[in-house]
Computed example of a mutant assay.
Amino acid sequence: MSVLIKIDRYLRRTGMPVSKFGRLAVNDPRLVHDLKRGRQPGHGIVARIEAFIDGGAA
């Protein structure tokens, strides 16, 4: 499953704004917008995103 799909599911489940997610997960409020525009995250960013989602931080 792609990281963008995981993010989208998390955002729908929690109701968190996309900019807040990016800021809390990787300190980048434009993260989700950039991913939707084709940005390819590195392994470290993906790991931080998945850790944030798995940790359930909201």
Rank of each mutant, 00 (worst) to 15 (best):
A58T: 11
T14V: 10
V32W: 10
I45C: 08
S19V: 03
V26G: 01
G15R: 12
L4Q: 11
G38H: 13
A58V: 10
L11T: 01
R9K: 13
I7Q: 01
E50V: 11
G22N: 11
I5P: 00
L4C: 06
N27V: 05
Y10T: 07
T14Y: 05
Q40Y: 07
S2D: 15
F21P: 03
I53Y: 12
A51M: 10
V3P: 00
Q40D: 13
V26S: 01
V32H: 01
G22F: 03
M16H: 06
A58M: 10
A58F: 07
R48K: 15
R13E: 14
G42P: 00
R12K: 15
G38S: 11
T14G: 05
R30A: 13
F21Y: 10
R23F: 10
T14E: 10
D28S: 12
R9T: 08
V18K: 15
G56Y: 04
I49E: 07
G42D: 14
G22H: 06
L35I: 08
I53K: 11
D34Y: 01
L31I: 05
M1A: 11
D34P: 00
P41F: 05
E50S: 06
R13L: 10
I49R: 00
P17K: 14
P29F: 02
L35T: 05
V26T: 14
A25K: 00
A47D: 14
H33K: 12
A25W: 02
R12H: 10
P17N: 11
V46S: 07
L35D: 04
I7D: 02
H33W: 07
D34K: 14
A58H: 11
R48M: 08
I49C: 06
L35M: 14
V32R: 00
R48Q: 15
I5C: 04
D8W: 02
I49A: 02
D34T: 04
D34H: 09
F21L: 10
M1H: 12
N27G: 04
M1F: 05
G38P: 08
G22K: 08
R12S: 08
G38M: 08
Q40E: 14
F52P: 00
D54E: 15
M1T: 09
R37K: 15
K36D: 06
Y10R: 02
G15K: 11
V26A: 07
A25Y: 00
R13S: 11
R30W: 09
N27A: 14
D8E: 15
D54H: 09
L35A: 03
G42E: 11
R23H: 11
R37M: 06
G38R: 12
I53M: 10
P41C: 06
